[in-house]
Design a protein around this nucleic acid. Sequence first.
DNA 1: ACCGATTTACTTGACATCATGAAATATTCA
DNA 2: TGAATATTTCATGATGTCAAGTAAATCGGT
Lengths: 143, 143
Amino acid sequence: MATRTDTLTLEVVELIGTVVARYHEEYDRAAAEHSLTGAQARVLGLLSLDPLPMRKIAVRLKCEPSNVTGIVDRLETRGLVERRPDPADRRVKLAAATETGRRTARELRDALDFAREPLAGLSDAERTVLRDLLRRMLGEETP
Amino acid sequence: MATRTDTLTLEVVELIGTVVARYHEEYDRAAAEHSLTGAQARVLGLLSLDPLPMRKIAVRLKCEPSNVTGIVDRLETRGLVERRPDPADRRVKLAAATETGRRTARELRDALDFAREPLAGLSDAERTVLRDLLRRMLGEETP
DNA sequence: ACCGATTTACTTGACATCATGAAATATTCA
DNA sequence: TGAATATTTCATGATGTCAAGTAAATCGGT
């Protein structure tokens, strides 16, 4: 509790707020260059790695499945994603990125300079320190 | 360019993504406890410090002024914010937090444990290192 | 092994919020 | 007077929730 209001902690909290804002600016800007919203880019990024059931997309996005229906609908209309039946369970629909979708996702990743370009200013040792501090902050103890 | 794809950089980028996600979860959870959306909590937080013209709220939020109208409308309906004329310019409306609004904003800040509680696990020296690394990453060179 | 009840996956519809852009109004400023 | 600024309104679309509906899988008792 001693850390609640000291200057150093507040500075770090504010810097993290700035990181969050910067991250979103970059992400939305990159998405907009492909006429995608942030949510659409996020889902396309997930599906470019592996097809996923609608349910699991909702879990990843921490939202209701009914919401995912609309997002995938819009991506499907644009030919970036397609729905396939799951041979193992006919209730399930697997959303999968099309070839065009995968290409768009790749371009999106390449355009996402955030934290990659800025990190270039840090040495390997510094990046290691940053990684370990972030891990501990997030409670992901190094195994 | 050597930093584009190395493992260490990608790890840090992913950790930052996790930080961003965690930040939003905490923020939205804290806001929801007061039946506020993220955007409403954000505006209330701004106004709890100082009254602001609608225009400046839009600049801070990086959105259109017409959007701010609705957000402030909802806060005003709930008695958390009020609109006042600006004596210096009759075109301008100043949005100001009411006493209730300031109290809600304070409770919101206190409930926002993100990065404050986790940072407790870091020593002063470590927090200083983290602060300086984040500053350099954000291009805010220490003056 | 069968069959009805429950659960699970997804979609649809109604609704609120957030976001943009264009047009309207009021006021300031050159 | 005419251009620029601050705000609002309106139309529209994306995102989010929740409740209800359909289809398919699974469970439990006989």
